[in-house]
């Protein structure tokens, strides 16, 4: 029932993910943070097989950091997305592939533009203005088709996000109790409450 979605707007990307960790019919945890901060201007929301998400996101986090230490600059979102996609594509052809779906949100400090990438466990990657994974995506994508504006200021973006969360609460049989929301813009990454 994991749901995560993300939208881009004027100079920012918002990434939101529900915080419920469940196993079978049992809620195990309600404050799980699925959004990893990969670098000063890069966020990654992971959903999928619980162990895999942690293993893979930590693997990515460490490698992005290693690149930063070695080369004295951070990978820009497009380069990071390409590398992550490649890692998943290689994993898919291994004996035990990672079953992880990702949303990668970032802000490119060289071109001053926000970016959002939708990546799945098969190694598919596309750059999109808004994206969603999980059961929530069935309701949210049509909503975003109608209401998303790539030039919207942050307040409007957050209002659209609120609509999405309300829609999922209304229609999905299991309502995610809480969301973690993180924003990345020119000033870097920050977490907000809605």
């Amino acid at each position: 029932m994991e749901t995560s979605f993300a939208i881009t707007g004027k100079g920012y990307t918002i990434v939101a993910s529900d915080t419920t960790a469940a196993r079978s019919i049992v809620k195990m945890k309600v404050d799980e943070d699925r959004i990893k901060v990969l670098s000063s201007h890069l966020l990654m929301a992971c959903s999928g097989e619980p162990g895999d998400t942690i293993q893979f996101s930590e693997f990515v986090e460490r490698n992005i950091r290693l690149f930063q230490i070695r080369n004295n600059y951070s990978l820009k979102p497009s380069a990071a997305a390409a590398w992550i996609r490649r890692s998943l594509a290689q994993s898919l052809r291994s004996r035990k592939p990672y079953s992880v779906n990702l949303l990668l949100g970032g802000y490119d400090t060289t071109s001053h533009r926000p970016h959002l990438y939708w990546v799945d466990y098969l190694g598919t990657m596309t750059e999109v203005p808004f994206a969603a994974h999980g059961y929530g995506s069935y309701f949210v994508l049509s909503l975003l088709d109608k209401y998303h504006d790539p030039e919207a200021p942050l307040e409007e973006g957050l209002a659209v996000l609120k609509r999405c969360m309300d829609e999922v609460a209304k229609r999905l049989i299991v309502n995610p109790s809480a969301y973690k929301i993180k924003i990345v813009d020119k000033d870097g990454v920050r977490e907000i409450e809605l």
């Binding site: 080369n71 600059y73 990978l75 820009k76 497009s78 380069a79 997305a81 390409a82 590398w83 490649r86």
Partner: peptide, 11 residues
């Protein structure tokens, strides 16, 4: 191939 971007000169 890895990063879908041109290699930095110093690298």
């Amino acid at each position: 191939l890895s990063y879908d971007s041109d290699i930095p000169v110093e690298l």
